[in-house]
Design a protein around this nucleic acid. Structure first.
Lengths: 197, 197
DNA sequence: GTCTATATACAGATAGAC
DNA sequence: GTCTATCTGTATATAGAC
């Protein structure tokens, strides 16, 4: 029983599955495509995971741990505007470094969040409400410009994830160079102007 | 040959198909689901359209005509900030009134724009470049704050379509009330602050 | 024009040899 | 642990009666 090979194959499968699920959605993904991408046979995939659903589930579980972290990292003791800016940059970095994860998530939400509604309605919701209260307190103290905390958070999600989720569109509109070229500078200006008290 | 019934049935099919394709993506949608939703039999769908692909194609073609219109409506002779604000409100209204169309589009882009790359690389790209030049000219004249025109356009897309595309997430995080409650006020503040010269 | 019945293809999952 | 071969369900599309 070689645990090293097992771990290597599980990783190969999950990496291939992330490629395929993020590019085609759950229904559009096939075990054949994942197996080909992973360099394994289809039955071998199902030796490591019970079902297509189980592979997808494993990807989401991996993702959700890292999904909350940037929001959690906002420090109540920090300087308000700087904390929001750092959060925005953190999310933008994730969109650049983990675009497949962003698209996996987007595919799920777009289709009504069938497999994520529990997570969103409990953990994510509680965390967002907590951070919204923090931001509202900062506003009340006059340390941030008056701004709706929920919409502020949504705006950061929308603006950063857009570069991962709509990457195909941006590349077709601006074929030359990196799709995220100039994004950080633009978003820094935008939030500096929005948040200055 | 009753053209009135034909038109009515084509409309029924396309409306049902928009429901199903936007909610489940191309592969996730089934003719069974569309037929049930339309109140017709599956072979009857294929009497009006050659294939599942053809139904999808018809939806996209309908969509693309209306997709360019708000960008085109930006008036070079207008007051710069007011024109941008009007464009943003126009897009926000479309996200509210046509969320299924927004999700249909998002599904396509997310999966690499396989059926939209021609449209995006030609018509949309040309229009965006034209509008970017207009905005750049306004900036050069000092009538808008210095801002990257492309990223400004992307930001409006991201922030408005987010309310349609991520509607499921927003509803789970804020179960009470309308997901777009406060969105227009927030975005108005945001762009007022960003664009003031 | 609309239906029931069906041909055909493909995808998820399993059997069983090695 | 990994493979080939295969079972089974489901989806697109067609045939043909009415």
């Amino acid at each position: 029983m070689n645990t090293r090979i097992q771990r290597r194959n599980r990783r190969l499968i999950l990496d291939a599955a992330l490629d395929v699920f993020s590019a085609h959605g759950f229904r559009g993904a096939t075990l054949d495509a994942i197996a080909r991408q992973a360099g394994l046979s289809k039955p071998n995939l199902l030796y490591y995971f019970d079902s297509k659903e189980a592979i997808h589930r494993a990807l989401l579980d991996d993702l959700l741990e890292t999904w909350l972290e940037p929001l959690r990292a906002i420090d109540p003791a920090g300087e308000p505007a700087a904390e929001i800016m750092a959060y925005m940059r953190h999310k933008l970095r994730m969109a650049r470094d983990y675009p497949r994860e962003s698209r996996l998530f987007a595919n799920e939400i777009l289709q009504g969040a069938p497999r994520l509604s529990d997570f969103i309605a409990s953990e994510l919701r509680a965390l967002v409400e907590d951070r919204a209260r923090l931001i509202a307190a900062w506003v009340a103290q006059g340390r941030l410009a008056p701004v709706d905390p929920m919409h502020l958070i949504f705006s950061i999600w929308a603006l950063t994830q857009h570069y991962a989720d709509f990457d195909a569109q941006i590349r077709l509109i601006r074929p030359q160079g990196d799709p995220m070229q100039g994004a950080e500078a633009f978003l820094t200006t935008l939030y500096n102007r929005l948040l200055a008290p």
